[in-house]
Amino acid sequence: MNSREAILGALRTNLRRAADGGEGAKTVMKRLTTHAQNLIPMRGQRDLSARVALFEDYAVDAASTVARVASTEDVPAAVAKFLRAHNLPTKLVRAPDPRLDAIPWRRQRILTLEARPATENDAVAVTGAFGAVAETGTLVLTSGNTSPTTLNFLPETHIVILWADQIDPDYESQWTRLRARYGEGMMPRTVNLVTGPSRSADIEQTLQLGAHGPRRLHIVIVDV
């Protein structure tokens, strides 16, 4: 008997499962296909403008920085301002994301952008997001041909362009959107929930930012 059968056999015996799975099999199938929601905290259940404000509060609590701009046109100036304030390079690597293509980057001549996955030599990455969660100030980033995962982790600075209406009350709303995009039971290779920049408290239980992932996480929220 192979190990798979030995382990499953022991579980079936100890859990007193009927040979054909019995009632249990039906219960499990139903639970997996209905994926019912559990208790959802009230905290994020607000209208859009209050949700954006809550997202901003929790993002800042988690040591992200946030800028609000009125329209897509204003994004390049906001990015340039952030880079200047932190004395960061203006050579950027960005996601090959159509929403980022539509941003008039040339208005800030100082910026140069390359659309590709990140390497260990890149200092600043700019990406979009699949969505965001107001409840905890969390970004939802998915992998795909227009959103390489390396951009989220290799560069020291990560700038995320987020449209205000992408901010949902809770994670559950994001799962609903994911299922609509990728199909029932299907996921992209990677979904990153990101709440703030990288950190470690492994030395004397004292928090330090910038462990292995980005030291800075800057979120530019575009009003809609």
Binding site: Y58, D61, A62, T136, G137, T138, S143, G144, M187, P188, R189, T190, V191, N192, L193, V194, T195, G196, P197, S198, R199, G213
Partner: peptide
């Protein structure tokens, strides 16, 4: 409130 990175991985790269 939430750890910094919660990552969901499904299969190899597409």
């Amino acid at each position: 409130e939430m750890s910094v990175y919660t990552t969901f991985s499904s299969g190899p790269r597409r």
